[in-house]
Design a binder for these strands. Structure first.
Lengths: 191, 191
DNA sequence: CTTTTCGGCTATCAACCTTAGCCAGTTCCG
DNA sequence: CGGAACTGGCTAAGGTTGATAGCCGAAAAG
């Protein structure tokens, strides 16, 4: 019996692809083994459990997402950074819905979980982006949460197919980002 | 063996309570049967499958949510309606996270699925609420999607415990709603 | 070339969803 | 009131999936 040359990283990558194709909840050890050309128990030589696998997918997703946002906002500031970052995130989630679902479903196991660091990098990108708006420090946390809320909410609703009337979702997204941008730019104009 | 007096409605209600307590994904037929004082197969006399049960929970959730929002916005308009409706929705999701999770996880089975009608009632409430802002009809759909996106995003992030720094989530929520309200009220001031 | 390690495999178990079929309590009708 | 029909419990059993134990040949180490 020839060896398949599996590694934890490869198993994780292929499981992430599979999750993107069939949906994160539909991902099973059996299907993953089949795709890797291997029997189910063999996977446990590389991954300790399905929970462990899910955790690896989640960490991969958050890391990739953080990179995508960083790359998109690099060298931009204010409105440009918001627009570029928002579109980068939306694009990533549309391309990798299974990974993103894993990233939201999995909870960190402890305070030094690399998943926390990866998620923190995403937040840090949004935080840096917001600095371009010169927001009152006491309101930064609220603005950060709002940006995160909007992008997360839109991504999950869109991926779940919850925008029934398909009156151009792209237009709605752009409209929404412009709305937020305008609000952020005029934050200081009101008491 | 005495009868337990179960009905589809009762089974649904108890399963919804259980989902709120232990989380929707953790809901199993076995646990539900145990809580009802019955063996697992007995449930199938009232519900055809777990998918059917989930669908009933989802419909219950959307119906209750629509009622809560309607009650909260009744007799209010504009900012008042937005604030009251938003808080009603947030409160409902915090009180019934399992139900709400079911409502988002379950997909309608067909065009005449009652789940669609229930979800439609929620949307209709937001739509009615937005009329108070006198928004340009061409922008209504975008504003509606934004409101939905924000409330859904915030609710899911909060319930999932994803606001780490627990710097007053209540304050952030109010801040965010005020931000949106202000933007909606001044929509027409800018081409 | 021998020895050790490692990564496949088969066999097996436990949990969960589901169906089949039995049987007693309930209801309905003569 | 009494028997027939129905209803809603139950036990038994099967399929699927996650997970473990332990074997055994291939790869790596010396």
């Amino acid at each position: 019996m020839p060896r398949a040359g599996l590694t934890p990283a490869l198993v994780t990558e292929v499981s992430a692809e599979l999750a993107d194709e069939i949906g994160f909840p539909q991902l099973t050890m059996g299907l993953l083994a089949e795709r890797l050309g291997v029997k189910t128990p063999s996977l446990y030589k590389h991954v300790t459990s399905q929970a462990d696998l899910n955790h690896r997918i989640a960490t991969l997703a958050m890391t990739e997402l953080a990179d995508a946002i960083r790359d998109a906002t690099q060298g931009r500031a204010g409105s440009d950074a918001l627009i570029a970052g928002a579109h980068a995130m939306r694009l990533y989630v549309k391309k990798h819905p299974g990974r993103y679902a894993a990233g939201n479903a999995v909870k960190p196991t402890g305070p030094d979980d690399p998943l926390i660091a990866a998620a923190g990098r995403v937040l840090a990108s949004w935080s840096a982006m917001l600095h371009g708006y010169r927001i009152d420090p006491s309101q930064e946390i609220h603005a950060l949460r709002m940006v995160r809320t909007i992008l997360h909410g839109f991504a999950t609703l869109e991926v779940a197919g919850n925008f029934r009337i398909d009156a151009d979702v792209d237009v709605s997204f752009t409209w929404m980002i412009n709305f937020i941008d305008h609000g952020l730019r005029t934050l200081n104009d009101h008491h």
